[in-house]
Design a protein around this nucleic acid. Sequence first.
DNA 1: TTCTATTGTTACATATTGTTACAATAGTAC
DNA 2: GTACTATTGTAACAATATGTAACAATAGAA
Lengths: 243, 243
Amino acid sequence: MAPKKQILNKEDYIPNLAFDSVIFGFNGKKLKILVLEYRNTGLYALPGGFVRRNESLEEAVKKGVSERTGLKNIYLEQFRTFGDVKRFDPEPMKRILEMNGLDITSHSWLLDRFITVAYYALINFEKVMPKPDPLSDGIDWYSLDELPPLMMDHQQIIEKALETLRENLDKKLLGMNLLPKKFTMKELQQVYEAITGTSFNRSGFQRKMLGANTLLRHEKRFSGNSHKAPYLYSFKTTHTTIG
Amino acid sequence: MAPKKQILNKEDYIPNLAFDSVIFGFNGKKLKILVLEYRNTGLYALPGGFVRRNESLEEAVKKGVSERTGLKNIYLEQFRTFGDVKRFDPEPMKRILEMNGLDITSHSWLLDRFITVAYYALINFEKVMPKPDPLSDGIDWYSLDELPPLMMDHQQIIEKALETLRENLDKKLLGMNLLPKKFTMKELQQVYEAITGTSFNRSGFQRKMLGANTLLRHEKRFSGNSHKAPYLYSFKTTHTTIG
DNA sequence: TTCTATTGTTACATATTGTTACAATAGTAC
DNA sequence: GTACTATTGTAACAATATGTAACAATAGAA
C-alpha cells in the first residue's frame, strides 16, 4: 500500500483558526457564489483555508481567494468571525481526508474545533477561472436560491455575508467590483437589484447615481438593437482591495 | 523562594486566539471607555481574555465583560478580527507575567502570536462597578480624547469600534443601552452627540426620535430648576444582548 | 406678579425622493 | 427616404423629508 500523503503541516499553521470566503459574482442577471465540492464526498463548502504562523490573516485570505479565482487585487471585506462550539464536528473532515488519500493521524489537528473568520469577495464574473482547491474536485457558481446543502454553518455564513453586502451597498461603491470597467446605467441598476433583491425606479436610480458624482461618462455602446444607444460609464475611483 | 503561580492553563484554552472588548459608557457628558492597567508595568490595555476549548467565542466575551463590569445582559457587538503579524510582540506579556509572579515557562503560550476578535459593549455607566482582571490592579474610565498610551494595536481597535458604533447608531437603537431606563429627550440627544461628535438641532432631533415610533412617554421629571419640566421617555423594545 | 430658562410643538422654507411624461435616437420594415 | 418600435436621457411635477426659526407653555426664583 502506498504511504499516505501529508500536505497540511500542523506546525506551519495557527491551530483552530480558519477563514471562509463568500465569493460573489454577477453574471448579468443574478448574483452568484462560488461553492466547492470535496472529492468523492458529496460535501459542498465555501472556499476557505488556514493561516500560516508567519502570515497575516488578510494575506492568507487574499492568497486563498486568488488561488480559487485566478485573480489578483480582489475586493475583500471581513464581515464576521464565527466561534460557536457547535461548529465542531470531525466527521466531514475525516471523510474529506480519507477520500483524498491523506494520513488521518498527521492531519488530526484538522479534526479539532475551528473558529473561522469570514470574508466576502466581489469579483468580475467574466474574468474568473475557478479552480478547485487541493482537497476538492469541483468548484462552481451557484445562485443564492439554488445553493446545494452546505457543510456546517456555511449557509448561515452566506446569509450574513449577503446582509452585510446589502448594508454596505450604498456606503461603499461596491457595484464597480462586480462589473467590467465600462458598463451601462442599466447594468449598474441590475447589479443593485440583484444584490438588494428589489427593483428600483429607472429615473430615480439614474439621478441618484449621477448625483453621487462618482461616475465618468464615456462613449455610447451600439448594441445593434433598434433603439437609443446607452452611454457607457466607469467609476472615477479605483477599487480598494480591503475595506 | 515561593513557587511561581500558574493560572492560565495552556490545555484549557484555544491557542493564538484572544478577544478584546471596547466597553463604552456615558457619564452624562462624554463617552468613556474602560481601560485596564497591568500591575507594576505602566502598561494600559483593553479588557480582554481567551476562549476555553469548550465554550463559544460569545460566551467567553460575555463572561469577560461581565467580570469587568459586574453586569449581566450586556449589549455586545462583534465588529472586527485583527490578525496582523505585527500584533506579535512577546515582551509586554513577559513583563506582565513577571510582575504578577507567574511562571514564564508554563505560560509561554501567552507569548506567542495572537489573533484577536474585538467586540464593543454599551453599558449603563451608573450601574457599573469596574473590577480589574487577575493580572491588573487598575481599571478606569477614560474619555476618548484622554486615553493613555495603549498596548499593541489597542488604539486602532478603539477607533474601529467607534467607527462601527457610529455606523450602527441609527440602524440599531443603541441609545438605550447607554442610558437609564427612563431619560429625557435632551439626555438622549446628548448621547447621540457624544457618539457622533457633532451637534443636532433640538427640534429636528425630537421630531426624528418621536417619529421613529420607538419611544414611550412617561411622567415629567421635576428637577427643582425654574423652567418647564421635560417628559421622561423609555424605549418600547427591550435591548438585545448580541447584535 | 414678573421674569428666566427650558421644553414641546407648530410653521414655513428648503432639499430630497418618487413618479410620470416627453423628447431623442438606433435600428427595422417598407 | 418615412413610419415604427424599443429604449434611453432628462425634465417636470408631486409627495416627503429635513433644516430652521418661531411661539406658546411652564417650573421655579425673585
